[in-house]
């Protein structure tokens, strides 16, 4: 009598069925984790071993060795190494300026990394697109600027920020009007971020930032406004 409800409506069969389903979910989860872990582990080990082969190239760059030697050292030795080489180059470029940077930039161009990233800009895969944009930004790939600008209107908002960030790394004032255009489509919460990216352009950005803070003053908290006014004071004085 006691378990009429349980036994009447939730038959043993049903409970056994649920148990089996859950058991398989558990089994799948464990297998998935196991595979995921091993994949990450093996990949990381492989990548690290391949990296070692290309890192000496950075030494050559720092030593002002001729470009041919650098290119030789950076040329892919095995299928699939391109990803590794690009990482090695970008990791160094992030922290460098001046001649070593220029040398690595030239290497990116000559070894086809720039072209490849440019092609990936039109990829449907957001991750690939984002990475390509980031890479082009770090390379300060001037030839990519127009392509990125053309892409801007079609991107979702988070990708827009990635694109604008890479434009601000390329740092050609030609891109500034497009920041202005994007400002019209962005919600006010994102405008301080936009302005901070524009600051990267230095003095040429000042008139654009002024216009932005005049047009949408409500989007800038007092602290940010004050800072922006300070940064653009030089322009206002003209």
């Amino acid at each position: 009598m006691l378990s009429l409800a349980l036994q009447g409506h939730f038959s043993l069969d049903m409970i056994v069925f649920t148990t089996i389903v859950l058991f398989w979910i558990v089994a799948i989860l464990i297998t998935y984790m196991l595979l995921l872990r091993s994949y990450y582990y093996l990949r990381a080990r492989y990548m690290a071993s391949r990296r070692k082969l290309y890192e000496p190239a950075i030494e050559l760059v720092l030593l002002d060795e001729p470009q041919e030697k650098v290119l030789d050292a950076l040329a892919p030795k095995r299928w699939g190494d391109r990803e590794v080489i690009l990482r090695v180059i970008l990791d160094s470029m992030r922290h460098l300026e001046g001649p070593p940077f220029d040398s690595l930039q030239a290497a990116c161009f000559k070894l086809g990394f720039m072209d490849r990233a440019l092609k990936q800009l039109s990829s449907r895969n957001k991750l690939r697109r984002g990475r390509a944009m980031e890479a082009l930004g770090i390379m300060r790939a001037h030839p990519a600027m127009l392509a990125i600008i053309m892409l801007l209107p079609k991107q979702p908002r988070d990708m827009k920020l990635v694109a604008l960030r890479s434009l601000s790394l390329i740092r050609d004032p030609f891109a500034l009007p497009y920041y202005e255009r994007e400002a019209e489509t962005l919600p006010p919460t994102m405008l301080p971020r936009l302005a901070s990216l524009m600051l990267e352009f230095g003095p040429p950005a000042q008139p654009f930032i002024r216009t932005l803070i005049n047009d949408r003053p409500e989007a800038f908290p007092p602290r940010v406004m004050k800072l922006l006014l300070q940064e653009t004071a030089h322009y206002a004085a003209l």
Partner: peptide, 8 residues
């Protein structure tokens, strides 16, 4: 400031 130019 970083990024830096080793020459500098």
């Amino acid at each position: 400031l970083k990024p830096f130019d080793p020459k500098k």
